Amino acid sequence: MNICVFLSASDLPDRYTRPAREFAELLGKGGHALVWGGSDTGLMKVVADGVQEAGGRLVGVSVEFLAAKARKGADEMVIAKDLPERKGLLMRKADAIVIMVGGTGTLDEATEILELKKHGHTDKPVVLLNTAGFYDGLKEQFHRMEDEGFLTRPLAELVFFAEEPAVALAYLEEALGNR
């Protein structure tokens, strides 16, 4: 599988890096490819290192203004002209999406894929990896949106919430038949 991971490029504490590294190692050992923002900094670097060291492939999509931070030695690296093009390329190259901890860029990517899925423009499985309860508030907001009629599809059809890396990958492998 080509698994796109939306996540931060910031340096983060162990409570976030350890589970991200665990997911990356599981992904690599499973023979899957990481599709990510291409950065060789912060949490993006942690995940890319873990996948590569465990034998997985790296497919990066950076953007012109961040090209200097793009990882050298990725199996594939594309440089997009801007953030919208980058986001589109990341989604097209992926069989599935995992949302890890991140800031406004990650939140933008997460809500766009869910909006596309809500309207039937993609059927790719989406997992929100809720490391250390990072997305508890967002999860609550999504449930409120569902309860109050703002979602045209059940939340469970849009996103799977996982608390642990192994649960996230198991869900994706089952959803896609471990291809």
Rank of each mutant, 00 (worst) to 15 (best):
N2W: 06
C4H: 05
F6K: 03
L7Y: 00
S8T: 14
S8W: 05
A9Y: 13
A9F: 10
S10C: 09
D11R: 12
L12F: 02
L12Q: 12
P13N: 00
R15Y: 02
A20H: 03
R21I: 04
E22Q: 12
E22R: 07
E22H: 07
E25N: 03
E25W: 00
L26G: 11
L26N: 05
G28M: 08
G28D: 08
G31S: 02
A33D: 10
A33R: 12
W36H: 15
W36L: 08
G37H: 07
G38K: 07
G38F: 03
S39T: 06
T41L: 13
V47N: 11
A48R: 11
E53G: 01
E53I: 00
G55Q: 06
V59D: 02
V61F: 08
V61T: 12
S62G: 15
E64S: 13
L66E: 11
A68D: 12
A70L: 05
K72M: 09
G73T: 09
E76G: 00
E76K: 10
M77I: 06
V78C: 05
I79S: 04
K81V: 04
L83P: 07
G88I: 04
L89A: 10
L89Y: 00
L90I: 04
M91G: 06
M91H: 03
M91Y: 01
R92N: 14
K93M: 14
K93H: 13
K93Y: 14
A94C: 00
D95V: 08
A96D: 06
V98T: 01
M100G: 14
G102T: 09
T104L: 14
T106E: 08
L107K: 03
D108C: 12
D108R: 09
D108S: 14
E109Y: 04
E109S: 10
E109D: 14
E109T: 14
A110L: 15
A110E: 10
A110T: 13
T111W: 07
T111P: 00
E112R: 00
E112Y: 11
I113Q: 02
E115L: 06
L116G: 03
L116A: 01
L116W: 11
K117R: 13
K117A: 13
K118N: 14
G120V: 02
G120F: 05
T122L: 06
P125S: 01
V126D: 10
V126N: 05
L128D: 07
L128Q: 11
L129R: 09
N130G: 01
T131I: 15
T131N: 02
A132E: 11
F134P: 08
D136Q: 08
L138R: 06
L138S: 06
L138D: 00
K139C: 09
K139S: 08
Q141Y: 15
F142K: 01
F142W: 15
F142N: 01
H143F: 12
M145L: 12
E146Q: 09
F150Y: 11
F150V: 06
F150N: 03
L151P: 02
A156D: 15
A156K: 14
E157Y: 06
L158Y: 10
V159H: 02
A162D: 05
A162L: 07
E163S: 11
L169K: 03
L169R: 01
A170H: 10
E173Q: 15
E173K: 12
E173N: 15
E174L: 10
A175N: 15
L176C: 09
G177R: 10
N178A: 15
R179G: 14
